[in-house]
């Protein structure tokens, strides 16, 4: 009996992402924070000019982003995106 594994189990590499934020565009909807599959994001302690808490990387999660781009695509304000770290 063998264990099922993806065929690229050894070659596939999980990417690591870098989060970029445009704080002044954020309206604090929290979509990116709540729906990040790796729970990388958290609310900022400070607020932007409109008074919203924008997303930041949660303490200790700096290496956890996998550049899945979900935060990017779900952001209504085009205020967050990720890039793959090389």
């Amino acid at each position: 009996m063998t264990t099922r594994r993806p065929v690229n189990w050894t070659s596939a590499k999980i990417p690591q992402g870098q989060v970029y934020v445009l704080p002044e565009r954020c309206k604090g909807c929290r979509f990116c924070i709540e729906f990040c599959p790796k729970k990388v994001l958290a609310e900022s302690g400070s607020i932007n000019a409109k008074g919203y808490h924008y997303p930041v990387v949660a303490p200790g999660k700096e290496a956890d982003c996998v550049h899945c781009r979900f935060c990017d695509l779900v952001c209504p304000e085009f205020a967050i995106f990720t890039e793959e770290r090389k």
Partner: peptide, 12 residues
Amino acid sequence: VEGAKIVPSHHL
């Protein structure tokens, strides 16, 4: 490894 970087523009 850093946290979020603040940037002035979005890639789209």
